[in-house]
Computed example of a mutant assay.
Amino acid sequence: MDAWSTSVYLVSMPNSSRPPSAATLTTTVGAMVLSVPLMTFTLYFVLVTDDGFGDFPATWALAILALAVGAYAFCEYVGFRTAPLEHGGEPHEVEAASWMRFTTSTFVRFAVCEAVFLISVPLGIITQSFWIVLVGAALGLALLTWEVWPGPRNQRRFAAALEARGVPSYLPGRPQDHL
């Protein structure tokens, strides 16, 4: 990184311990998570009739619950795994590479968690029950909030995998940012 890029990087985050990639990822994930309640609201007008939300098909609700448990297990056991960082490199390069890998992992976990909601949509249309969509939306939002949101919990979990060889990832921040 040349002097100009370094100065732009440092000026772009004046009193912040978060790199620009962290703010961008948070904004992107927030917009993507917002799609679940928006789609649920839209499907309300498609599936709700004069009779109400329709019957509650418990079998299909249990299928959505099982899918959510599978998505949770995948995210917990596979979603935060990555190859450890190699020794060497400038701190800003290591931090950029860490954020790139964390972002990739976040999008994979997002796809898995959102699948719970997306599968509930056609099931709700087939069963003509808005309840299935509500169950899928509730479980999907819970998973997205817990497993995908790029907060400190998920950053620390991913940083632990990156730092398995003792190389600092700077994902939760650089030491000088916490002084």
Rank of each mutant, 00 (worst) to 15 (best):
F41L: 15
W149T: 08
G52W: 00
A160E: 12
G30A: 06
L144I: 00
W146D: 07
E76C: 13
T127W: 01
C113R: 00
D55A: 15
T127F: 02
D55K: 12
P150M: 06
T82N: 07
E147Q: 15
V133Q: 01
F117C: 04
L85E: 13
V69Q: 08
G173R: 07
T28S: 14
W131A: 02
Y9D: 14
A31K: 10
P152H: 08
V48A: 09
Q155L: 13
I126K: 03
A63I: 11
I119R: 00
P91G: 06
L143I: 01
S98F: 06
F45S: 14
D50S: 14
V46R: 12
P57E: 04
G30N: 13
G88F: 01
L144P: 05
L34T: 10
F102T: 02
F41Y: 13
V148S: 05
H87K: 12
T42I: 11
M32V: 09
G140D: 05
R165E: 15
F56M: 12
L139N: 04
P175D: 11
L25V: 06
P20N: 06
R174D: 06
A161H: 13
R156W: 09
A73V: 15
G88Q: 05
A115L: 11
A161L: 06
D2S: 13
S17R: 10
S120K: 03
N15L: 14
N154Y: 12
G79I: 05
W146E: 05
V116H: 06
P14A: 10
D177E: 01
S120P: 07
A115C: 09
L123P: 02
I132Y: 04
D2T: 13
F56N: 08
R165T: 14
P19K: 02
G136Y: 02
G88P: 06
L25H: 11
E76H: 15
V46Y: 11
M100S: 07
L134W: 03
S7H: 14
L179V: 12
V11T: 13
L171H: 08
N154T: 14
C113E: 03
